[in-house]
C-alpha cells in the first residue's frame, strides 16, 4: 500500500476529532483531581448517561440540538446528586478507595442503563445541518466530524480564557497549587470545587451526546473510553488545561494511527506513547506545578 495523501489527511482529521472528544472528558477528570485529589472514574458514567439521555430525547421527537442542549444538563444534575450523596464520602480517602467506589458506580450505571435500554446499541442521528460532507484539504470530509473539531477548539479557547483571565480561574489555579493556603485567604474551596465539578461533568455530558452519532450508544461505552481518558491525563500531566489538550492530541493520534498501522494491536501504540512520555517525564508533559515534583 503506497502513501496516499488523501487517506492521510482524512486520518489526521479523524485523529483531531477523536482528540477533541477525549479532551472534553479529560479536562474534567484532570482538574477535579488537581483541585481535590479525587480520582473520579464515574466521570465516564456521565458520558454514557448523557448519550442515553440524548437517545431518549431524539426518540421523543427532539432534534439533535435539543438533545445537546438538555442531555448534558440533566446528566450534570444527576452527577452532582451522585457526588453529594455518595462520592463525597471518599473525599478524604485514598485514591484506591476512590477508584474502587467510582468503578463500582461505572458497573452499577452500566447495569441500570442496560436494564432500562437493553443490550443492543442504539443510534442517534447526526444533525442535518452537518449531514453534508465538506471539501477540505482536497478531500471530502464528514461535516459532523468537523463540527466536533470546532466544538472542541471553541471549548479549549473558552476554558483558557476562563482559567487565565477571570477571578474564578485564578481561584481554581490557586486551589490546584495549594488548597489550604487558598482557604486561609478566605476562598471557599469546596464551593469552587463544586462549580468546577459541575463544569467538568457538563463537558463529559457534551462528549457523550456528540459521540453518540459516531460510535452509537451501548452499555459499557464509558469503560472503553475512560481508560483512554485516564491515559490522556497521565500523559498530559495532572491538573492542567494545556496538559489535557496536549495529552488528548497525542492519544487521539496514537489511537487513530495505531488502528491503521497495527490493526490487531491498536492499544500497543497508545501504551508505547505513554511509556515513552513517562520514562522522560514521569509527571506527564505539562502538569500543574504542584505535580511537577519540584514542589
Amino acid at each position: 500500500m503506497g502513501f496516499d495523501p488523501q487517506f492521510f489527511a482524512e486520518q489526521l482529521l479523524n485523529s483531531l476529532q477523536f482528540a477533541m472528544l477525549l479532551f472534553l472528558l479529560a479536562i474534567g477528570l484532570s482538574v477535579i483531581f488537581g483541585l481535590m485529589d479525587y480520582l473520579n472514574l464515574a466521570h465516564g458514567t456521565i458520558y454514557m448517561l448523557a448519550a442515553y439521555l440524548a437517545f431518549s430525547l431524539t426518540q421523543l421527537g427532539g432534534s439533535f440540538w435539543v438533545a445537546l442542549a438538555f442531555a448534558p444538563l440533566a446528566a450534570t444534575a444527576i452527577g452532582m446528586v451522585l457526588y453529594l450523596l455518595l462520592l463525597k464520602r471518599a473525599e478524604t480517602e485514598t485514591h484506591l478507595v476512590q477508584v474502587l467506589l467510582t468503578v463500582g458506580v461505572i458497573y452499577a450505571g452500566t447495569d441500570i442503563l442496560r436494564i432500562i435500554y437493553g443490550d443492543l446499541p442504539k443510534g442517534v442521528n447526526q444533525p442535518e445541518l452537518f449531514a453534508a460532507p465538506v471539501n477540505i484539504f482536497g478531500i471530502t470530509y464528514p461535516g459532523y466530524r468537523l463540527f466536533i473539531i470546532g466544538l472542541g477548539l471553541v471549548t479549549q479557547i473558552g476554558l483558557y480564557f476562563a482559567l487565565e483571565r477571570t477571578r474564578l480561574g485564578a481561584l481554581v489555579r490557586a486551589g490546584v497549587d495549594d488548597r489550604q493556603t487558598a482557604e486561609t485567604l478566605g476562598v471557599n474551596i469546596s464551593a469552587v470545587f463544586m462549580l468546577v465539578f459541575a463544569i467538568g461533568t457538563y463537558l463529559a455530558g457534551v462528549a457523550g451526546v456528540v459521540a453518540a452519532p459516531i460510535f452509537g450508544v451501548y452499555p459499557g461505552m464509558d469503560a472503553t473510553i475512560i481508560i483512554l481518558v485516564l491515559i490522556v491525563v497521565v500523559v498530559g500531566g495532572l491538573g492542567s488545561l494545556k496538559g489535557a489538550i496536549l495529552g488528548s492530541l497525542l492519544i487521539g493520534f496514537a489511537d487513530t494511527f495505531g488502528k491503521i498501522l497495527l490493526p490487531q494491536f491498536a492499544m500497543v501504540m497508545i501504551y508505547l506513547v505513554m511509556a515513552i512520555v513517562l520514562i522522560f517525564r514521569p509527571t506527564g508533559l505539562l502538569p500543574a506545578r504542584r505535580f511537577t515534583g519540584a514542589g
Binding site: 485564578a170 489555579r173 490557586a174 490546584v176 497549587d177 495549594d178 493556603t181 487558598a182
Partner: peptide, 8 residues
C-alpha cells in the same frame, strides 16, 4: 513557607 501561588 510564605505559600505564594506559583501559578498566579
Amino acid at each position: 513557607t510564605r505559600a505564594i501561588f506559583p501559578s498566579l
